[in-house]
Every structure is written in structure tokens, then in C-alpha cells.
Design a protein around this nucleic acid. Structure first.
Ligand SMILES: [Mn+2]
Ligand SMILES: [Mn+2]
Ligand SMILES: [Zn+2]
Ligand SMILES: [Zn+2]
Lengths: 150, 150
DNA sequence: TTTGATAATGATAATCATTACCAAAAAGGT
DNA sequence: ACCTTTTTGGTAATGATTATCATTATCAAA
């Protein structure tokens, strides 16, 4: 696990490299799911039972701040996290959420058309409202194939 | 205040018409802000100090369910509500959120281009993932004009 | 290597928005 | 006015996230 690539950025920001940070980052790196703090805690706990939930929260906040991971709210009352774009070949994407079973689908396919419209819209909004846009959130809600049959 | 138009729908659903419901609905009808449950409580409390916060929550839930109001999460840890589209000339719109001061801007201007892309995207996603899309959430984050100067 | 200043951790308590409970009050048909 | 059913409002409970703070780990310097 001794990868150096992100250790450097870490040290560069004056942060110490610790076991919990290494472990939590690794968990996020190896899943394609959108894990909550507690789910990460449970996973981490299997191998490192000494690491506490508080540390999970603190580390997640740090990783978000450093741009390693993204924090999402999918409406289920808890924050969920996933690796940021650029890492592990992750691409910028949006989400499709099943309001029945909670399934989350990543999609990047329509990024082309979307990106164009987004650019246009952001430009228009920036001008009209003198607003400096830095980020956007796009989510579609509905029923997944399984839940449509119920 | 004796408007009958929404009273009818209310009764039609088997719900009783009560003072709290009338008052809370009226508050939402008369503001263009995106109020939280507590803010609504405070407003209501000025004229009807006997109405409790629990009733505010319950009534808001009911109004959402009946389609009179919409519930939003703007990332400030509390739900915010506004009159649904169609009522009081409200149009379907999205939001521009200042991450510094919390300012919320409604915009409907770019609805045309957006609507087109949304339709396309929703269609594509529906087909590709066999997902029945019923709703969407689009928000832009950034700095408002005032906060850019700080 | 040891040391020492400082950052990080983890157990616990505190927050705070939202819900659950339940006895009392209000609504509306008779 | 009466009766049945809803609705209400005070209070306690919930549950995710944060704050506290004594203890431990990190890492640059000696
Ligand atoms: Mn994702
Ligand atoms: Mn709005
Ligand atoms: Zn589903
Ligand atoms: Zn601002």
C-alpha cells in the first residue's frame, strides 16, 4: 500500500500521514459504491477495530477539503462519499436515484450534451445575476427497473 | 382569507380544515422566500402563539404530499419550503446558491434550453437504464455578487 | 535512535433538526 | 348539542454529526 502519489500532496499540505487516513482512503479507493460514514466505519472496523467513528468523520471532512473525495446528499438523511473525479479513472458524473429502493446509478454518457448546456446556462446565469458559479448538482429521481415491476 | 379554491381539494382528500393549516398555508403563499420549519413557526407564532412546532412539521409534510408546496435541501442542514409551481403564478425553476452568505436565487430564464436538454437526457437515461424518471434536482453553487467582493 | 513540540485520535457528551407518543381539544356530520 | 374521528401540542426520543479533552502517534530536530 505504500503508494507515494497522494502521500506527497498530503504532506505538502502539512498534514501527517496516519493509519486511519491511509485505511479510510483505501476503502474509498476500492469501492464503486457511495458509502456513508457509518458504512465506512463498519468496513474499516473489520481490519482496524481501534479506529473510532469520530475519526471517520474527521478524516472524511479532510479528504473532501483536499479534493480527494466528494460528499453527496442523496436524501436518505446521511452524507455519502465517493472518490473524486480524476482518481482511479473516475469521471465527472451525475446520479440517478431510485426513490423506492435507494439504488444509485452513476452516468457519464450524456455528459457531452449536458456539458454544453451546463456551460451555456452557467454563463447566462453568471452574467444575469453576477454570480460566480463554482459547482453544480444534478440528480434525477425515479424508479429503477426492478421497482417499476412491484 | 376565505378562499375556497384549495379548501375544496383539501376536503376532497378527506382532510379537515383547521386554523393551523390555514395559517401555515397562508404564510407560504405570501412570501417569495424559502422558509424553514422553524422560520415558519416563528412567523406563525406572532399571530397564533398557540400553534406548536410539531404541527408546523406535520402540516408541511401534508402540504408537500398534496402538492401544494415543495421541499428542498439547500445544504444548510434543514429543509426549506416554497409554494409549488402553478400556485400564485409560481413557475418551475431551479436555484442558484451562494456558498458564502446562503443567498438563494430562483431562476426561470434558462428554462427553455434547459428543458430541452432535460427532456433529451431523461429520455436517454430512461432507455439506457430502464429507469422511470419522475423528478429532477438542479442547483448551481457559487458566490453572489456581494460575496465576490469580500 | 531518542526527544519534544505539535497534530491526531477516540471515548464520551453535546447539538440540533426531525419524529414518536399520547392525552386533550377541535372538526364536522348527525 | 352529541358523537366519532382527526388533529393538535407538549414532551420525550431519535439519529447523524460535532465538540471536548485527555491520551497517543507523527516527524523533524538533536
Ligand atoms: Mn457517483
Ligand atoms: Mn425557489
Ligand atoms: Zn429501485
Ligand atoms: Zn453571497
Amino acid at each position: 500500500m505504500g503508494e507515494r502519489w497522494w502521500h506527497r500532496k498530503f504532506r505538502g499540505c502539512g498534514y501527517r500521514l496516519t493509519v486511519p487516513r491511509e485505511v479510510i482512503f483505501t476503502v474509498l479507493s476500492k469501492t464503486s459504491k457511495h458509502l456513508s460514514a457509518e458504512e465506512i466505519y463498519i468496513e474499516v472496523h473489520k481490519t482496524y477495530p481501534a479506529i473510532g467513528l469520530t475519526t471517520i468523520y474527521r478524516t472524511l471532512e479532510l479528504l473532501v477539503e483536499m479534493g480527494f473525495i466528494l460528499k453527496f446528499d442523496f436524501g436518505d438523511k446521511r452524507a455519502r462519499y465517493e472518490l473524486a473525479e480524476g482518481l482511479q479513472g473516475k469521471q465527472h458524473h451525475h446520479h440517478l436515484l431510485c426513490t423506492d429502493c435507494g439504488k444509485i446509478i452513476d452516468y457519464t454518457d450524456f455528459a457531452k450534451e449536458e456539458k454544453e448546456l451546463l456551460g451555456q446556462t452557467e454563463k447566462g446565469l453568471s452574467e444575469k445575476f453576477n454570480f460566480k458559479i463554482t459547482n453544480h448538482l444534478i440528480q434525477f429521481y425515479g424508479l429503477c427497473s426492478k421497482c417499476q415491476k412491484k
